[in-house]
Write a protein that binds this DNA or RNA. Structure first.
Lengths: 247, 247
DNA sequence: CTTGACATTGACGTTACGTCATAGTTTATA
DNA sequence: TATAAACTATGACGTAACGTCAATGTCAAG
């Protein structure tokens, strides 16, 4: 059993916050002594953790209370949602970091920057959008279409296409030192995009997804890493720059 | 020249926000028409970008105004500060993600978890703390002491120490597949810590800094990547787990 | 038995806007 | 060219999540 002070230091909040959460029926102590003191136990810890996760993600205390009180609330499911939401937050911060870097280069006169890019990463929370894109990439129809197109080529052409792809990646590895935003690298991204047409024609969002897969899927990454240990990650970065420039 | 609506959509804020910023002398329009309309130009864009960065990082509007109005304010310096602050935020979110994962494992009964770890990543904003650590790591006295100790060894011993270090990293690469939290990996982190004593004796926080440097400093990372393409990043993760367990 | 750290319940203050309401201005379109 | 749609302005009050007192009671240690 924790007292208010103990729980507050444990969780990194103030005692006042716990008073507030009690008042609004968000987190009630499990026991109250005859002196009126609040005492919290294990259940409170897990509930407070959930509250803090939701709060971190921008939920209002009222909606948090409603969520946690729903009879079909499953804590493990919620935690898995938190994970992907937090990962989304990381991606957003990484975009902001890129905006910082580009602005520095812009101010030093090394590159030019349009006004929209000055604010890239600030507004966009769009999590729903992301789900839609992923769906489309893994959509069975997309996969089937891709396979059909690929199978329609004669063997010799297949080999030529694979070799062309390999050459794109080799060329990319050769100019990695120029940086993801360099004209050399961006030209190769363009070649890569054209190359993908042999399989199917991805939209801009799907390009991003593809490049992300190169980093995330272990077997893809292993192949790329044979060419250069950072090629997969670098491709992701270069394609992100490419897509931003296209919009 | 942008109108209120135009700038607001560009920057991802509401018109009301721009009204507010005008009222409190945080962001004044560069021109005001005879009809009272506000018009914003390039200088406003850069200033608004700064405002949004500081706001993102939790500064109050009042302190932002004071910062931006200081005569010695340098925008590029500020942007570089933003970058490292944002990187700190990313690290904090990554700790929260680890807390999510550990909680899930805990609830599934696969591992045990003490109450403190339930809240790891929530309280710690400690940016000041971080600055202090970094200062101590790069502190000239620390560097000199490290050099003195190193130079005091005879040549043969120097070679033996370097070889020992290399062996630690090779062994680490061999057990990477076990995961950063595995006993095998953690045992090698312990060996690594002892090994560091040849140079100087870092505290827990400095261990973290060192491991982070392996990923961030290009020359360090290049060396590590020769052993294994992900060794530097993996070391960082393993050391973080180690430090959390030690506390 | 007193001191200091903790606990309680009000109650008002603060920050960064949201949300109307009222009214004038510009732009698109019929 | 009339008029609606979309923008602009300035109040002024509302709000969320606590912070910050204030007044008072409780407990553990020396």
């Amino acid at each position: 059993m924790y007292t208010v002070k103990q729980l507050s230091t444990l969780a990194g909040v103030t005692p006042r916050t716990l008073h507030h959460y009690d008042r609004i029926d968000l987190l009630k102590p499990e026991e109250v002594g005859e002196n009126g003191y609040r005492y919290y136990g294990q259940q409170s810890l897990l509930r407070l953790q959930q509250i803090l996760f939701y709060r971190e993600l921008g939920f209002s205390l009222e909606s948090i209370r409603d969520i946690l009180n729903r009879p079909d609330f499953r804590i493990v499911d919620a935690l898995e949602e938190h994970r992907s939401s937090l990962q989304g937050r990381v991606r957003r911060l990484e975009r902001l970091i890129r905006t910082v870097n580009e602005t520095i280069q812009h101010l030093k006169g090394e590159t030019k920057m349009n006004d929209r890019r000055l604010f890239a990463g600030f507004g966009e929370e769009q999590q729903e959008e992301y789900a839609r894109q992923a769906e489309q990439l893994y959509d069975p129809e997309t996969v089937r279409a891709s396979n059909r197109k690929w199978k329609s080529y004669p063997v010799a052409k297949k080999q030529a296409i694979l070799e062309e792809g390999r050459q794109v990646y080799l060329d990319m590895a050769a100019v990695m030192s120029q940086g993801p935003a360099s004209p050399e690298v961006q030209a190769i991204v363009e070649r890569w995009r054209v190359h993908m047409d042999y399989f199917w024609t991805p939209g801009l969002d799907q390009l991003l997804e593809l490049a992300a897969m190169y980093s995330q899927s272990p077997d893809f990454k292993a192949n790329f890493d044979q060419i250069h240990p950072q090629l997969a990650d670098f491709m992701g970065e270069a394609v992100r720059v490419y897509v931003e420039n296209q919009r």
